[in-house]
Simulated assay, not measured.
Amino acid sequence: MKPNVKRIALTLLLAASSAMAAAPSPVAKIQAMLAKPKLMCGRFDQSKQLAGMKKPLAANGRFCVVNGKGVLWRTLQPFPSTLRLTRDEIVNYQGDRVAMRLDAKTEPTVRMINSVLFSLLAGDLGQLETLFEVDGSAEANSWNVALKAREPALAKAVGAIKLEGGAYVKSIVMSEASGDRTSIVFSAIQTGDGAMTAEEAALF
């Protein structure tokens, strides 16, 4: 997988997972615990520990998930950048300029990535379980899930993923085969029409 597409795939999966949990076991109990709003936005704080480096790389920003439309992932610090993920394409904005556009019709990798994304958002457990080995548990108000990709190419791109949450996903840890480790904590979740700013809505 090309390095830039790999980074997009990782970001995509993280953003998608913030909206809906992946295919946990026990599936029914965890799905019953999850809120499934049509529109959800919130804050993310990300820490990426690169293999061989002592100090992790930190970033934060906002994300929005719009059911049926896609995901908006806006990094605010340390450098502003926006990623818009829809069924047909992945677009990266630097300010008002489109820095990169990947079309699912011409880029097979995008089609695979978006298949994972929309399976997560739609709660398509059958599709997810064909791509990941899943293991999880649920208590009264919390749950945790571990995902391990079945296919070597997907495993190389996303590694192993762990999620924890309640009504929403609270944290995600992704451990890549290279030794890199990404942790993301979600907070300040808002749902409904007022959750998204006018600027964010314009990008859809």
Rank of each mutant, 00 (worst) to 15 (best):
D45E: 13
L120H: 03
S18Y: 08
P80L: 03
T75K: 00
S137A: 08
K29P: 08
A149T: 09
D96P: 14
T75G: 06
F132A: 01
A59G: 06
T109F: 15
A58R: 13
G179L: 01
V158Q: 06
D88L: 00
S187C: 09
E200S: 10
E200I: 03
L83A: 11
M112F: 10
Q190M: 05
A188S: 11
Q31C: 02
A122D: 15
P108R: 12
A198H: 09
L83I: 14
L154E: 15
R181T: 06
T130L: 06
N144C: 04
M33S: 02
L154S: 05
S47T: 01
N114T: 07
P108E: 11
R111V: 00
W73A: 07
I113M: 08
D45A: 11
A104L: 10
I172E: 13
I90K: 01
I30E: 05
V27S: 04
N60I: 08
L10R: 03
S142K: 07
V98I: 12
A149S: 14
S18V: 15
A19N: 06
R87V: 03
K148C: 04
A146N: 13
G68D: 01
C64T: 10
L13W: 11
M40T: 12
F79Y: 12
V91F: 03
K55V: 11
I90Y: 08
T197R: 15
S187R: 00
T11M: 04
E164C: 07
I113W: 02
L39Q: 14
